[in-house]
Design a protein around this nucleic acid. Structure first.
Length: 428
RNA sequence: GGUGAGGUGGCCGAGCGGCUGAAGGCGCUCCCCUGCUAAGGGAGUAUAGGGUUUGUCCCCUAUCGAGGGUUCGAAUCCCUCCCUCACCGCCA
């Protein structure tokens, strides 16, 4: 959510800036809403002030045993007007709120201009794609050959875009998450968290999934008729970031660095036909998430650091990758800057996204009212929030299978994972 | 799920229809005093929105778990919901 004051005062600048990410701000609609809001709010507050003052008079009159009936009828009239105005104002505020909540974040100046994926800029690459002297298999063939990826059972049990992993592959999956969590907690200073997988609506508004992207989520049925159901998390970013919702933090409590391993659930509505083969796009997948809550002055350095933390996972696994700075049009709604990590997949002969690291600046903090106290400042200021995958476990598994495959269809186990596999060196 | 007790400012805790944005205490900030330390005295100390100015000044409104209701007026009364605690039941 953007700063309403900024929106009011720098409308043209904001609109132009948003246009560079492909969002058309309806200036006219906003101005109209704003004008109506202003006049309604002023009259409403004036009426309230009148009512409060006269009610006080009535109180005094009664205490002194004076007549108060005339005053009462006057106030009654005011109250009636007030009710009408209040209702109108509430309606406008709902509209305003929806309007503002639907506006994406302003991109940072350093973000490449462009609207499509092709406009993303490669910042650096790491590692060399290995050369194979045999025909490489993709992870689906490898997984089925090793009887470790069971797509048939998953379809029977749940449907498409689900997976059953078994045996050594299931274990490798577990090894990956253990390895990632250990790395981030022991080397990168994150606190390990265990969080709910079902969250309430406030949390989803806080991190920006709602109101715009409810269709990407799985929602549970309301528990009661009036009650609103909870939703399965699409990423641990939601519970982790919402830890600081409605909180004023002391400066010395920052930065807060949190990590959690959770399943993630996405409806993938609108992605029909995309990545239908294999593990790339699942309704349920696992991720080790990194979240940082920082002083706004340091958020850009924090983004670089957080991206490094995610990169370290790939480096230790010796998986070739590249870092892409997303262009304005390709970034997620709440991000002011995003780096995607793309891992090399030999079977596809291309790099595929395995992590997305974003600085959300104050976009989520404003929605969540997550603030900090600054020395010398009277008012608390909004913190900045960042998040990134460190990494998507399912896709990392794909990368390991494909990059570490051998001519006979077996898989070497990356050295750093072997301690987590009882010292095993291969999956056969 | 049942019964009972509660949810008030950074924290503790009063208030139970108007004089309460909220006593008192703790904490914190500034000042004074005391040669250090301890103690003492004084002042200040919520958040959000708006008006007005762009002067960190002033004014207004809202907020005592959330949402409704009663009333001229609600932290205070009524209803619904959420949460916390205790006991019972059930259960991984």
């Amino acid at each position: 959510m953007l700063d309403l004051k900024l929106l009011r005062q720098e409308m043209t600048h904001v609109a132009n800036c948003l246009a560079t990410r492909g969002f058309e701000l309806n200036v006219e609609e906003f101005n109209q809403l704003e004008a109506t809001r202003k006049s309604l709010q002023v009259t409403t507050e004036n009426l309230q002030a009148q009512r409060n003052a006269m009610s006080k008079q009535i109180g005094q009159a009664i205490r002194q045993g004076e007549e108060s009936a005339a005053l009462k009828t006057q106030v009654e009239q005011i109250s009636q007007d007030l009710d009408i105005n209040k209702a109108k104002l509430a309606e406008i505020q709902i509209q305003m709120n929806h309007f503002v909540m639907s506006i994406p974040n302003l991109p940072d100046d350093s973000v490449p201009v462009g609207l499509r994926e092709e406009d993303n800029v490669c910042v650096r690459t790491w590692g060399e794609p290995a050369k194979f002297d045999f025909t490489v298999l993709d992870h689906v063939e490898l997984g089925e050959k090793l009887q470790g990826l069971d797509f048939k059972s998953a379809v029977k049990i749940s449907g498409s875009r689900f997976i059953v992993k078994r045996g050594q592959i299931a274990q490798l999956n577990r090894a990956l998450t253990q390895f990632m969590l250990d790395l981030h907690t022991q080397q990168h200073g994150y606190e390990e968290m265990y969080v709910p997988y079902l969250v309430n609506q406030d949390s989803l508004y806080g991190t920006g999934q709602l109101p715009k992207f409810g269709g990407d989520l799985f929602h549970t049925q309301p528990a009661t008729e009036e009650g609103v159901g909870m939703s399965l998390i699409p990423t641990a970013e939601v519970p982790l970031t919402n830890m600081v919702r409605d909180t004023i933090l002391e400066a010395d409590a920052l930065p807060i660095k949190l990590t959690a391993h959770t399943p993630c659930f996405r409806s993938e509505a609108g992605s029909y036909g995309k990545d239908t083969r294999g593990l790339i796009r699942m309704h349920q997948f696992e991720k080790v998430e990194l979240v940082q809550i920082v002083d706004p002055a340091h958020s850009m350095q924090a983004l670089e650091a957080l991206t490094q933390h995610a990169e370290t996972v790939l480096q230790q696994l010796k998986l070739p990758y590249r870092v892409m700075a997303l262009c304005r049009g390709d970034m997620g709604n709440g991000a002011c800057k995003t780096y995607d990590l793309e891992v090399w997949l030999p079977a596809q002969g291309c790099y595929r996204e395995i992590s997305s690291c974003s600085n959300m600046s104050d976009f989520q903090a404003r929605r969540m009212q997550a603030r900090m106290r600054v020395k010398g400042e009277k008012k608390p200021i909004l913190v900045h929030t960042l998040n990134g995958s460190g990494l998507a476990v399912g896709r990392t598994l794909v990368a390991v299978l494909e990059n570490y495959q051998q001519a006979d269809g077996t898989i070497r186990i990356p050295e750093v994972l072997q301690p987590y596999m009882q010292g095993a060196t291969h999956i056969k």
